[in-house]
C-alpha cells in the first residue's frame, strides 16, 4: 500500500513559540487519523499546516502524489450569513455540482426544506451540518476536518462518522481533530499533541 501522507518531525510556531512537541506520522490510503490534545495545543494549526494554509512550521509535510486533492474544512469554513444554504454550498463545492447533487447532499444531512434559508436562521448544529454536507458531494484524496463533530446531535455524529468511514473506504486519507475519544468512529491512528513547554 503506497504511502500518501507523511509528517516528519512537524512542529508549529506562532511568534517563535512552539505549540506542540514534534509529530511524526505516516498515513496510507484509506486510513483515518484522529488528532487530539488540550485547548491551544495546535490541533487546528497542524491541520492547516498539512493543508498548506499555514507556513510557520518546522519539519516536513510530504505527499507521495503532489496532485492529491487536499481539502481542509475548518470550523469557520466560509459560511456567509448573506448567502442562502444552497448558495453557500455551491460556493463550498466550487460551483462544480448540479442543483440536484446539492439538494441530495442537503437531504442527506437533514437540511431539506432549508435550501433558501440563511445560515443565521439555523441552529449551531444545523450550520455544522450545512458545512459537512460537502462531504457527501465532493471527491477528495486527503480530507482535513477541524472538530467535525462539534455541535452535532447523536444522529448527526453517527451520520458524519459513517460518511467519514465511507470516504476512507474509497481510498481517501481522513485526518480530523477532536476533543473526545468518539466511540462512534474508530480511527486507525491517533496523534496526541503534547503542549511544548
Amino acid at each position: 500500500m503506497a504511502i500518501k501522507l507523511q509528517l516528519n518531525n512537524l512542529s508549529c510556531f506562532y511568534d517563535d513559540i512552539q505549540l506542540f512537541k514534534p509529530v511524526d506520522l505516516t498515513l496510507r490510503k484509506g486510513e483515518i487519523c484522529r488528532v487530539m490534545g488540550p485547548n491551544g495545543a495546535g490541533k487546528t494549526t497542524l491541520l492547516r499546516s498539512v493543508g498548506g494554509l499555514f507556513r510557520g512550521y518546522n519539519g516536513k509535510v510530504m505527499l507521495s502524489d503532489e496532485a492529491s486533492r487536499i481539502h481542509y474544512l475548518g470550523h469557520r469554513a466560509g459560511i456567509r450569513d448573506e448567502l442562502t444554504c444552497i448558495e453557500n454550498l455551491q460556493f463550498l463545492t466550487q460551483y462544480s455540482l448540479t442543483r440536484t447533487s446539492i439538494d441530495s447532499a442537503l437531504e442527506r444531512v437533514g437540511l431539506i426544506g432549508y435550501e433558501q434559508a440563511f445560515p443565521d436562521e439555523l441552529s449551531a448544529g444545523q450550520r455544522r451540518r450545512l458545512l459537512l454536507a460537502t462531504l457527501f458531494c465532493m471527491q477528495f484524496d486527503i480530507l482535513l476536518l477541524d472538530e467535525p463533530f462539534t455541535a452535532l446531535d447523536v444522529d448527526g455524529v453517527a451520520l458524519i462518522a459513517a460518511q467519514l468511514k465511507n470516504i476512507a473506504e474509497q481510498g481517501c486519507i481522513v485526518l480530523y481533530s477532536t476533543h473526545h475519544a468518539d466511540a462512534v468512529l474508530t480511527p486507525n491512528k491517533t496523534v496526541m499533541l503534547e503542549v511544548s513547554q
Binding site: 493543508g51 470550523h75 466560509g78 459560511i79 456567509r80 466550487q94
Partner: peptide, 17 residues
C-alpha cells in the same frame, strides 16, 4: 474582511479557480 473572518478566504485559496 468578512470573507477572512468567516473563513471564506481560506476556502478560496483551496479552490481550483
Amino acid at each position: 474582511r468578512d470573507d477572512f473572518s468567516s473563513g471564506a478566504l481560506e476556502q478560496l485559496v483551496q479552490h481550483e479557480v
